[in-house]
Design a protein around this nucleic acid. Structure first.
Length: 144
DNA sequence: CGTGAGCGA
C-alpha cells in the first residue's frame, strides 16, 4: 500500500456553511432567467476528450495515474508553454470510451490534486489548429 | 480560508 500518487481524493466536507441564510432570506425562488444567453461556455457534449484544469503542479503522468482509476486513459497531457516549459495550469485527458470519460469527470471533478483543485470537463473539438507553421499537409488528429 | 472557469504546437 504505498501509493506515491498525489491523487489524494480530498473532498471538502459539507461544512463551511455558517450564515448562508443571513440577510438574503427574502426572495427565495429563482428569479427567472434574465434571458441572457451564455454564449459558448464550458460544458460541451460528451466526448472522449477531457479538459482538466488545476494541473499547475501536476504532470501528464500525474493526470494519467489519477484518471486511470476511472477508465482507460488513452492519452494524458498537461499543457505547458513550449518556450519555458512551465505548466499553463490545465491539461487534457483522453479516454477510450465515453463512459470512462464520464466516470472520470464524475469521479475527479472538484477533487484535490497536488494541493490544487482540479476540474474535469469535456474538451472542445479542436479541428482548427494554429497555423504557426504553414505545414505541408493537413494534420488530422486521431478520431474515434 | 486548498479555488482559477481556464481548451492543447
Amino acid at each position: 500500500m504505498a501509493m506515491k500518487n498525489a491523487c489524494t481524493v480530498a473532498a471538502a466536507g459539507p461544512r463551511g456553511l455558517r450564515s448562508l441564510f443571513s440577510t438574503l432570506s427574502t426572495n427565495f425562488p429563482f428569479p427567472s432567467q434574465p434571458a441572457a444567453n451564455q454564449s459558448q461556455r464550458p460544458q460541451a457534449e460528451p466526448s472522449t476528450n477531457l479538459f482538466v484544469s488545476g494541473t499547475k503542479r501536476t504532470t501528464d503522468e500525474g493526470l494519467r495515474e489519477c484518471f486511470a482509476k476511472f477508465g482507460e486513459v488513452v492519452h494524458a497531457r498537461v499543457v505547458k508553454d513550449r518556450a519555458s516549459g512551465w505548466s499553463k495550469g490545465f491539461g487534457f485527458v483522453r479516454y477510450s470510451t465515453l463512459e470512462e470519460a464520464a466516470a472520470g469527470i464524475e469521479g475527479m471533478d472538484g477533487k484535490f490534486l497536488d494541493g490544487w483543485v482540479i476540474f474535469a470537463e469535456y474538451a472542445r473539438p479542436r479541428d482548427s489548429p494554429p497555423p504557426s507553421p504553414p505545414s505541408y499537409a493537413n494534420n488530422h488528429y486521431g478520431r474515434q
